[in-house]
Structures are given as structure tokens and as C-alpha cells.
Simulated scan of single mutants.
Amino acid sequence: MKPNKTLGLTVAALGFLALGYFGVQHFGKNNMFTTAAAVGGAGAISYVLQKPSQPEAPAAPIKTQRRRNKS
């Protein structure tokens, strides 16, 4: 992994932990569990319902025979 990516992921993880800690202090444990479950459920639903990023492979082409012109 690139150093900038590692640093970014570390900062994001620490930010989310701090947000969760202070959120529990302000809103209470049950409200934070409810919020986490709602966000997790929305993420799971969007993952299941998303369209595939690549189109399906087309069916094998049908070979046609050319007719010869009898001159």
C-alpha cells in the first residue's frame, strides 16, 4: 500500500473512532447503536441492489453461410 493511502486510512479510522466516542457521550449508547444499525443496513441494501459494473458477455455470434452467386 502507498504511504499516503495508509496515512489516510489511519486518519479516517481514528476520526471514526473519535466520532463514535463523542457521539455516545452526547447521544447515548442506544441511539448510537440505532444509528450504526441504520447506516449498516442501508449499506448492505445498496450493495445488494447495485447494478453490475461490467455488462454481461454477449452470446456467441451466429455464423451465417454466404450464398455463392452462380454466374
Rank of each mutant, 00 (worst) to 15 (best):
residue 38 A to K: 07
residue 4 N to V: 02
residue 45 I to M: 15
residue 8 G to A: 06
residue 16 F to S: 13
residue 18 A to Y: 05
residue 71 S to L: 12
residue 20 G to T: 09
residue 39 V to H: 07
residue 19 L to M: 15
residue 47 Y to P: 00
residue 19 L to T: 02
residue 28 G to C: 04
residue 65 Q to W: 09
residue 35 T to K: 00
residue 12 A to M: 12
residue 38 A to Q: 09
residue 15 G to P: 13
residue 36 A to P: 01
residue 16 F to I: 14
residue 25 Q to I: 08
residue 55 P to M: 05
residue 58 P to D: 05
residue 2 K to G: 01
residue 15 G to H: 06
residue 26 H to M: 11
residue 17 L to M: 11
residue 2 K to E: 12
residue 65 Q to K: 15
residue 7 L to R: 15
residue 57 A to P: 13
residue 13 A to H: 13
residue 27 F to V: 12
residue 62 I to M: 12
residue 32 M to N: 03
residue 16 F to L: 15
residue 23 G to T: 13
residue 39 V to T: 14
residue 67 R to V: 12
residue 23 G to R: 09
residue 47 Y to L: 07
residue 14 L to N: 12
residue 13 A to G: 10
residue 67 R to L: 06
residue 62 I to D: 03
residue 6 T to L: 15
residue 64 T to C: 04
residue 3 P to V: 04
residue 48 V to L: 04
residue 36 A to E: 03
residue 69 N to P: 03
residue 53 S to F: 01
residue 60 A to K: 10
residue 71 S to K: 11
residue 28 G to Y: 07
residue 52 P to W: 01
residue 59 A to Q: 15
residue 68 R to P: 10
residue 6 T to P: 01
residue 64 T to Q: 06
residue 3 P to H: 01
residue 17 L to G: 09
residue 44 A to C: 10
residue 22 F to L: 12
residue 59 A to N: 07
residue 3 P to G: 05
residue 32 M to V: 07
residue 2 K to T: 10
residue 54 Q to D: 02
residue 17 L to S: 05
residue 47 Y to W: 08
residue 41 G to W: 14
residue 25 Q to L: 13
residue 57 A to H: 12
residue 57 A to F: 11
residue 4 N to Y: 01
residue 44 A to V: 12
